[in-house]
């Protein structure tokens, strides 16, 4: 428990460091949110300067950082110039949508990857190996963005699926069953695209890790005691193979916010992806910094989760304290 507290403290320091760095990096990038206004002849230079000073952009870097830090403590995470609202509330809604998509897809991908990878590793049939190798290579070779575009094409051509959004406009008027149907309808494509994008890496890791464990002598020994094949695979081999997979799981939790950026943009998912893209282009810096920080938080949580899970799953790494 003290170990977890220490890890959390480390995480906090890391966040502070990341925030300083992102601040510095956005400073290095040329221009700011109000630069575009300068091009508009109807807006005078004084007005732009007034706006800049109103938002404190004329202050030195450290002063702006400290002001931002103050707003973090108030839970606002700075101010979005484009949306005229606090970054906290803006990001929260978008992050929730993204997490809904990636959480569902990642969960689904893991649920498929573990049995599929284990089965392929245990199979002695040549066609299974060939199909597995070919299939994962193919999926691995297709870039996310192409996958998303293919699904977009599918939606547009067939008309079977909505081309974007998370729910229909008249969603609130549906009854409960209608709402479920509408959600499934909207989730189907993005979740499938996302699952297919994450699946090949996971399933390959499961396969590699299981193949290695399946060669260990303890499985021959267990087979000699009549442990049936399925139990051998999932109860005996899988926990031993889990060690690298748990680290990978931590990583996939850590990238929940960032993994779907491209797919969200292409399939118009109201998540963090389109918002981030917009904010970077417009130099709406606080939104960018907020999104980066959120990703960092998830990364820290993912790693911590992986370590806790490893501790629980693998007796060999439990150190006497």
């Amino acid at each position: 428990m003290r170990w977890i507290a220490r890890r959390l403290l480390h995480g906090l320091l890391l966040l502070l460091g990341v925030s300083v760095l992102t601040f510095a990096f956005t400073e290095i990038a040329p221009g700011d949110y109000f630069d575009e206004m300068r091009l508009d002849p109807r807006i005078s230079a004084e007005t732009v300067e007034a706006l800049r000073s109103r938002y404190g952009l004329d202050r030195p870097l450290h002063e702006r950082y400290l002001r931002w830090l103050g707003s973090v403590l108030r839970g606002e995470f700075g101010h979005s110039f484009a949306y005229h609202t606090s970054v906290g509330s803006l990001l929260w809604v978008r992050a929730r949508n993204t997490l809904l998509l990636t959480g569902l897809a990642t969960g689904l991908a893991w649920l498929i990857a573990v049995p599929l990878g284990a089965w392929a590793a245990a199979s002695k049939r040549r066609w299974v190996r060939a199909l597995f190798g070919g299939g994962t290579s193919l999926l691995l070779a297709i870039p996310d963005i192409l996958l998303a575009l293919l699904f977009l094409l599918l939606a547009v051509r067939t008309g079977w699926f909505p081309v974007g959004g998370m729910a229909s406009l008249d969603y609130p008027s549906f009854d409960a069953w209608g709402k479920v149907k509408d959600l499934v309808h909207h989730f189907a494509l993005p979740v499938t695209a996302m699952t297919l994008a994450t699946l090949p890496v996971l399933v390959r890791h499961v396969h590699a890790s299981m193949s290695e464990v399946l060669r260990s002598p303890f499985l021959l020994s267990a087979r000699g005691f009549g442990i049936p094949p399925r139990r051998l695979l999932f109860r005996y081999a899988l926990p031993v193979a889990a060690n690298p997979l748990i680290s990978l799981f931590g990583h996939s939790v850590g990238s929940l916010l960032s993994a779907s950026l491209l797919i969200e943009v292409v399939l118009s998912w109201p998540g963090i992806g389109p918002l981030l893209l917009e904010s970077i282009l417009a130099r709406d810096v606080h939104v960018v910094i907020g999104a980066v920080l959120m990703s960092t938080v998830l990364l820290i949580v993912g790693n911590l989760l992986a370590d806790v899970l490893l501790y629980a799953a693998d007796p060999r790494i439990r150190v006497e304290s």
């Binding site: 260990s216 002598p217 303890f218 021959l220 020994s221 267990a222 000699g224 005691f225 009549g226 442990i227 005996y236 926990p239 031993v240 889990a242 799953a313 693998d314 007796p315 060999r316």
Partner: peptide
């Protein structure tokens, strides 16, 4: 395992480490 069992040379690697 029920009517006939087999044990091996290396006890160190004959048991499930987890």
């Amino acid at each position: 395992g029920d009517e006939a069992s087999m044990i091996f040379q290396e006890p160190g690697v004959s048991l499930n480490p987890c």
